[in-house]
Amino acid sequence: MNAHAIDEVCSFQEHSGALAAFWGDVGRNMGGNMRDIQVSEITETVARLSQEANYYLPEDVLDALKKARRDEEAPRAQKVLDMILLNSEIAAEKQIALCQDTGTTVLFLEIGQDVHLVGGDLTKALAEGVRLGYKEGFLRNSMVTQPFSARLNTGDNTPPIVHTDIVPGEALKITILPKGGGCENMSRLAILRPGDGKKGIIDFTLRTIEESGGNPCPPLIVGVGIGGTAEHVMHLAKKSLLRKVGEHNPDQEVADLEEELLELVNASGIGPQAWGGRSTALAVNIETHPTHITSLPVGVNLQCHSARQKTAVL
């Protein structure tokens, strides 16, 4: 590089420094509404949510289990539901995990676009929250490394699976869904033909539940995604599980399909633990998304009766 070129580079650097300072001022002026959130606060929140989610069933789930118990006709199924409800009381009272499978820690973040995360790396802060929460809460570490060979326990249930949405506003919403392996392992994806229509969706969903039998620990919450692409439809199915039990999709046609599927699932006879009965599912939640002219993707993600989740808003 000759002397002249070096001068030019230096001159550009000075120039770009000035530009950066200028844009920085503009940024500061325009960003007057940015809200700082310390990532250490996120760590503390995730640690707390890990424990609370694993000890206490959400009210809507408890109410749905009690309703299922009232409506159940099979004597054996009635006893199973009684024991599930008793288990939730013992877990809450003794502060021990509802289920020994305290799950893969799935975290859903809704990050307001006016939030500025400061004080560290978000991904590390979330993992630290899981590590602390599982250790201090006497929760089981269930994550293993290299999935097809070593399978060594990571020793702290990290890493969590993290989904983020950027939304308007200056709040940060964190929802934890500790997802047990028994039900997660029964997830299924089908890319149907558009002509298969509603009947194809019903047949695939029912077949998934029939073949799963007692493995996902019924009574279930059945999460169904319809539309989008292969990976997006599975995401929709999982996300539908965040909805409160008993709430329907706002689209009436989708809500009708939820009702129809729930009736069919509960006519299967599978029942709690697949030992026979009426209460195979507490709810069917469907989320949809526009899709390609050639496609009809359907994803099913089953949630066991230990439907643990907890939300905090910072």
């Binding site: 199973v80 599930i84 288990n87 013992i90 509802l98 289920c99």
Partner: peptide, 8 residues
């Protein structure tokens, strides 16, 4: 045994 009744 009943899955999800580990506390009991």
């Amino acid at each position: 045994a009943i899955g999800g009744s580990g506390a009991l």
